[in-house]
């Protein structure tokens, strides 16, 4: 079987993309996270671990390109995240591969890859033929994580060539749980009027043992948080997502499509978020959320 190269710096992505890769060929992992390399090397046929001190996309893409050439691979899979898109674009440009993003399924046919992908802010689904040399960025939640170890893959350590970009990194300051790893996420939108009102969002999140976050305007325009949920920010796939006072702009909802259950609380019955929700609570968030908190506390005491 021809090798399919998976790029991942996270365990969960490595397991999701492994499921996708298994349907296309022989899965080979490329990662610069030692932890991920060690944890997943037993699941992949081969694992390349790149030693690097910083995330310089050009240097990492250069190392990936060398691996693609060494493996003579023609299919590359990436997470559909900001970083994944960057590395996919750089690597594809250098190799002359096409790059397809926002994919939800990839199938190999006699005429090359056939990809189903979201477009127009997730409002439409397109079926495209991607040829036989392509990078595909896959949306979180499209494939289930592979759990069982399947192979006794070898672990190859390589060095990245020094890049020409200086990188300074400051980890995301996180109050509480990381939304990308939480089972429950509570999101606040513009319906939340004051920064102080985020307290009830945080309280609800902590009652459910989950994380909280906001939409882009609350983070980028008002500065109430360091990160936001959406296609340009955090892409999440919790079991439960509660969208509070969020209208449902496509760039936000694209970031939560992977959630198993979505609850929306909004007083505008025509808000697009209700189209994206399993349970749509029509009502004033300032009345609904306090009651929800009260009832959940009662439930906890029972």
């Amino acid at each position: 079987m021809a090798p399919v190269i998976v790029y991942s710096e996270e365990e969960s992505w490595g397991k999701q993309l492994l499921t996708a890769a298994k349907g296309l060929g022989d899965p080979v992992l490329f990662t610069f996270n030692r932890n991920v390399a060690e944890k997943l090397s037993g699941m992949y046929t081969r694992t390349y671990y790149v030693k690097t001190d910083s995330f310089d996309p050009v240097a990492i893409s250069g190392a990936l390109r060398d691996v693609v050439n060494k493996e003579s691979a023609t299919i590359l899979l990436f997470p559909c995240t900001n970083k994944g898109r960057m590395i996919a674009g750089l690597t594809s440009g250098a190799l002359g591969f096409e790059a397809i993003t926002d994919a939800v399924s990839v199938v190999k046919t006699g005429e090359g890859l056939e990809v189903e992908k979201l477009t127009f802010g997730g409002n439409a689904m397109a079926k495209v033929k991607a040829g036989d040399k392509a990078s595909v960025c896959i949306v979180s939640g499209s494939y289930k994580e592979t759990e069982e170890a399947g192979s006794t893959g070898e672990l190859v350590e390589i060095e990245a060539k020094a890049g020409s970009v200086e990188v300074e990194y400051s980890p995301r300051k996180m109050e509480g749980v990381d939304p990308t790893k939480a089972d429950v996420v509570v999101g606040a939108g513009r319906g939340v009027k004051k920064k102080e009102d985020l307290e009830m969002i945080k309280e609800l999140a902590s009652l459910l043992g989950g994380a909280w976050s906001v939409t882009r305007p609350l983070a980028a325009d008002y500065g109430w948080a360091d990160s936001w949920i959406g296609i340009s920010g955090l892409v999440i796939s919790p079991k439960l997502y509660i969208a509070i006072g969020i209208s449902g702009q496509p760039h936000h909802t694209m970031g939560v499509r992977g959630a198993k259950i979505i609850v929306a609380i909004n007083n505008d019955e025509s808000a697009p978020i209700f189209e994206e929700a399993d349970y749509g609570v029509i009502g004033d968030l300032y009345k609904v959320v306090p009651v929800l908190i009260k009832k959940l506390k009662e439930r906890k005491q029972q």
Binding site: V58, R85, L90, G93, A94
Partner: peptide, 17 residues
């Protein structure tokens, strides 16, 4: 919103992204 064109241009020109 593919976000891949900029990175591809950098690669094709061989300049930092």
């Amino acid at each position: 919103h593919s976000s891949v064109v900029g990175p591809m241009v950098a690669s094709l020109l061989g300049v930092p992204l």
